[in-house]
Write a protein that binds this DNA or RNA. Structure first.
Lengths: 183, 183
DNA sequence: GTCTATAGCATGATAGAC
DNA sequence: GTCTATCATGCTATAGAC
């Protein structure tokens, strides 16, 4: 039996994501990640060409995880499925805010999700939105995504300081966007 | 007549914003800003307590500028005024992407706009959205802002790689959100 | 208000031994 | 694959002279 690798890909991506959520994306440094997986910084360069490649590992992983959760949630009528997918996104963003920002607005193109990781997510979204806006599903998908991502980002950044019920605002916004999309 | 200050507040904030737009928020360092205004780094600590305070100067300035432009654009019927304000936001975000992210999701609460700078912007928005959603203007304002900010962020981060007409997607999304908000 | 000088630290990345 | 050692660079922030 082969000697077990000290740094498996799973452990590596888990370490990156954990550091990112706990200390922020800037804290994902070669040495911090190395320490988390129990090696020295130079050894990491055998696994990832540089810091951004490390972030991309996390971005791809998070993209897959988010897609899984949206898929699992999206059942029922087209409208209901879309609403459930949006709520799944919000739940994911609440649980993994840094990973979410990595998926939607990474610090540089090489740190964001690869095209291969994004493709299935886009396909799922277009599929889900098609019944509501068969004439222009791409615009509709962008509208829904932009709203949901913007809402979650602002929520996490404390942009909603006016008080009020943020959960209710999410549900009202979701209803409004879905209402507006129907053509 | 008093000797003119080498570092006026105007020059300082202009330097911060220029560096931020040109090289990114991370490039706004004490020494970079100092060099831009023609002094040494330690001298800056007389003007701002630390790096985040420097960013807040830019955030407050950008907030005022954005509000001015939205105000100037928001004429006509309530619906038309809101659409124009949203387009003004998109234009501002295209011109000053880093400042925009500073306004809506700064890297830390002390780097974002001060409450004093935010208040008039919130008031304007609530006022503008009130005719459409008199029963819950706060949720409506959040929905519109979240969508517009999310759209602009994703646009700038190259999240719309599927091609298609992004301008048209913006207009369609805007129409959909405004349609959905009317109660 | 500005300067020089410096402390103190973290970073990304590489060379070469094992 | 991993290590030690190291380079070169950058940063925030402070002390104290002028």
């Amino acid at each position: 039996m082969p000697a077990p690798q000290r740094v498996t890909p799973e452990r590596l991506v888990a370490a990156v994501r954990e550091i990112a959520e706990r200390d922020g994306l800037d804290a994902v440094t070669m040495s911090a990640v190395a320490a988390a997986v129990g090696v020295r910084a130079p050894s990491l360069y055998k696994r990832a060409a540089n810091r951004h490649a490390l972030l991309r590992l996390a971005a791809d992983d998070a993209t897959r995880e988010l897609l899984d959760e949206m898929r699992a949630a999206a059942v029922g009528s087209p409208r209901h499925a879309l609403a459930a997918a949006a709520r799944a996104l919000r739940a994911f963003a609440a649980r993994c805010p840094r990973a979410t920002s990595l998926v939607f607005s990474a610090p540089g193109p090489d740190a964001g999700p690869s095209a291969a990781a994004m493709a299935p997510a886009m396909a799922f979204l277009l599929d889900a939105v098609h019944p509501l806006s068969p004439d222009d599903p791409l615009s509709a998908a962008r509208t829904l995504t932009a709203w949901a991502y913007g809402f979650c980002t602002m929520e996490q950044n404390g942009a909603f300081r006016q008080g009020g019920d943020v959960d209710a605002a999410f549900e009202r916004g979701l209803a409004a966007v879905l209402r507006g999309l129907r053509t």
